[in-house]
Computed example of a mutant assay.
Amino acid sequence: MDALPLSLHDVSVEIAGSELVHALRLDLRAGEVVGLLGPNGSGKSTALRCVYRALTPSSGAVLLDGADLAGQGLRATAQRIAALTQDSRAELDFTVEEVVALGRAPHQRGNLRLTARERELCREALRRMDITHLAHRSVLTLSGGERQRVLVARALVQEPAVLVLDEPTNHLDVRHQVELLRFLRGCGLTVLVALHDLNLAAAVCHRIALLRGGSLVACGKPAEVLTPDAVREVFGVDVTPVSHPVTGVVQLLYDLPVDGTTSEGTMP
């Protein structure tokens, strides 16, 4: 049987005496979109950092196609895993097309010109992210949402097998949030994505891994995981699940106070 493209095998991370992730076990199948959900401080970003090798697990291992990342070179890893992080920056005065072309760096040696095929990869990534019209603009002149789409395009140009995204919808307007998540669902890559929006996660993810305090609380299809009891336990809010009238995907209605009352019907 073929090895899974990505596995977190009992990954734990301890920093300054605090355990940020505890014995996290998660397997991703080829072409699957798996969402990491949890409140702030639940370990989502820490777990992702282990996958794109910004952190080394204190114990356990991250496996890429069945092989421990710790035994692989950074260039080899970058050819297989692309990441969009919360602290991604584009501070140099490069044009958009220059930043996107940097995605080919793991595949090149020396200061070689892009091949015709690589230039076409860049053009296609610009088109996919709806930023072709920005190709000759300096990234320093872009809005936060425009920069975010440039960085996603750069990741795509790496031609990764695994795409790791930490809050990729930050700064994006609603249209581009929907378009990005629709793309992730249909791109054929194995995707591990941390999201705050539970309804967007339910719409795009094949499975959801719910984290609390660095530990895995539940993992499964969105409707199996995003239950009222689980959401109350992990996030401390009450919800009512409903089915989307078109797609049938579970969506959550938050039980918010109405007319100045609390959910118990009394004034706060």
Rank of each mutant, 00 (worst) to 15 (best):
D2P: 15
S12Q: 01
V13E: 06
A16K: 03
L24F: 09
R25N: 05
L26R: 13
L26D: 14
G31I: 01
V33N: 04
L37A: 10
G38W: 01
P39M: 05
N40C: 11
G41R: 06
A54R: 14
L55P: 11
P57I: 05
S58V: 11
S59H: 04
G60Y: 05
A61C: 12
D68P: 08
D68R: 10
D68N: 14
D68F: 02
L69F: 13
L69S: 06
G71C: 08
G71D: 09
G71M: 07
L74Y: 00
R75D: 15
T77G: 13
A78H: 13
A78W: 02
I81S: 09
I81M: 10
T85P: 02
T85D: 05
D87L: 03
S88K: 00
R89F: 08
R89K: 12
A90E: 06
L92G: 00
D93K: 03
D93C: 03
V99E: 08
L102C: 11
L102V: 07
G103C: 11
A105M: 13
Q108E: 11
R109A: 11
N111S: 01
L112Y: 01
R119Q: 14
R123T: 10
A125E: 02
L126C: 13
I131A: 10
H133P: 00
L134P: 09
V139L: 06
L140N: 15
G144H: 13
G145L: 11
V152Q: 02
A153W: 04
A155R: 00
P160Y: 08
A161D: 15
D166E: 02
P168H: 06
T169V: 15
N170T: 14
V174F: 14
H176R: 09
H176T: 07
V178N: 02
E179W: 05
L181F: 05
G186M: 07
G188M: 02
G188L: 03
L189D: 12
T190R: 04
A194W: 11
D197Y: 09
N199D: 00
A201K: 07
A202K: 04
A203C: 00
V204G: 12
R207V: 12
I208E: 06
I208M: 04
A209H: 00
G213N: 06
S215C: 05
P222K: 10
A223I: 05
V225Y: 01
V225W: 04
D229T: 02
D229F: 03
E233Q: 15
V234N: 04
V234K: 01
V237Y: 03
V239F: 10
V239W: 10
P241F: 03
V242W: 10
S243M: 09
S243F: 04
H244S: 13
V246G: 03
T247L: 10
T247R: 08
V249F: 12
V249L: 15
V249R: 14
V250P: 02
V250H: 00
Q251E: 00
L252I: 01
V258Y: 00
E264M: 14
